[in-house]
Write a protein that binds this DNA or RNA. Structure first.
Lengths: 225, 225
DNA sequence: CTTGAATTATGAGCATGCTCAACTTTTCCG
DNA sequence: CGGAAAAGTTGAGCATGCTCATAATTCAAG
């Protein structure tokens, strides 16, 4: 009986012996397949209603295999943000014109781009985003990666602030400034999630006003207190 | 066989026939028992690791009964915040001296009290708090209650701001002002959750500085822009 | 007190995220 | 090639949050 359990599965879907292209290659492909299936399902059903069982099925692997590639379902979801953060940084580096624009414009462009990217996934962003707020718990293996991701983002922002500082646009704000921008972004996304207006226009308006307000405040030297 | 399933459970723990004090009374008592057991377990193990099975057992009821009283486990957790919010409001109404203090001091006292109250439950507050950020989903019956709770809090804050406004302490800030304080509180709790310093002193310092900064800002009339 | 309807309690059972021991495939080395 | 160690895969199975058909309890009317 127990010998019957491990029968080969539908061979049409995935060749059992994929000796062809080295191990590394296959692992990469499998990971890609998982990510693709996951994003599809997240988009279709949202984070909660996309089951790991269905993701695995769509990626043509066993459910256990999924957890060889991603420690948890959340980890899988975080991957999405990681890719986006990296993309965002690359994008900004390429936008030469933006590099010289005023700080408020830069931040607007950055946050706007993120909101745009996030838009089709609104359903599940709420869940992931809220979860990403949870503090590091030594029990959760996820927390470390999440922390890493946040750090990467913070360093990126700090760099932008430092540049504006060098241009004499703002006084020195240091790490705290980056943290502040992070909190601000938090607030914006919260607003965005609740925003029912067409095209999320209210959020964009808020973003614009808040940023120019902040910029003016910094210019006025209100920061030194 | 199926007739054997529904046997009376250990009669020592709970009298099977509690005809005594009317139905209402019993419901109240059961609810109390559930809440007590739940808070105990949340405190002991945090939200995730406190199972509904154990809560039920400790409250001496079947697991299904728990869900007659609370729609979801989250709902159960929210109850805790509801009680706290109500307590907070009552407390503030009683503190005659605070009513006349400057706005920054009032907000400091309010937030400080909340942090203090929350302290023993830090483990599970993160989870509940983060979850409370999730936008309303028509599927979740919880969302409505959650919204209600948030509204109660916002109205409370708005009232305080209105009073400060009447004293001529700040310009009119309206609903947006209350929302802003709410977002600020969000940031503070996030910081608090991550704060490893002794007695969360860093958070308290941040709270103090940020509030007096905000107060000064409003006084300077920077708000009109 | 009886009766039957309304209310409340019960726990087997379901779907889900995740684990793990058993199994397969690939790689390595003689 | 041979064969064994390493790396990867698998799906049965576990714990958990929650549901639902069924049973127990309560209460008002007769």
């Amino acid at each position: 009986m127990s010998t019957l359990i491990y029968m080969k599965k539908d061979a049409a879907k995935r060749t059992p012996k994929m000796k062809a292209g080295g191990r590394e290659r296959n692992k990469e492909r499998t990971k890609e397949r998982i990510l693709k299936a996951a994003l599809q399902l997240f988009r279709e059903r949202g984070l909660e209603r996309a089951t790991t069982r269905e993701i695995s099925k769509r990626a043509c692997i066993a459910e256990g295999t999924l957890f060889n590639y991603f420690k948890t379902k959340e980890d899988l979801a975080l991957y999405f943000f990681q890719k986006e953060t990296e993309g965002l940084i690359r994008w900004f580096r390429a936008e030469k014109r933006l590099q010289k624009a005023p700080l408020a414009e830069q931040l607007f462009a950055i946050i706007h781009r993120q909101l745009e990217y996030i838009e089709p996934y609104e359903d599940f962003i709420g869940a992931v985003f809220a979860r990403s707020l949870q503090p590091a718990s030594s029990l959760s293996p996820l927390s470390f990666d999440s922390q890493e991701l946040r750090l990467k983002y913070l360093r990126f922002i700090r760099e932008i602030l430092a540049a504006a500082e060098e241009r004499g646009e703002i006084p020195p704000v240091g790490n705290l400034g980056a943290y502040g921008v992070g909190l601000f972004y938090l607030g914006i996304v919260t607003h965005w999630l609740h925003d029912g207006s067409r095209g999320k226009q209210r959020t964009l308006a808020l973003l614009d006003r808040a940023l120019s307000f902040g910029a003016r405040m910094l210019q006025k030297g209100t920061w030194e207190w």
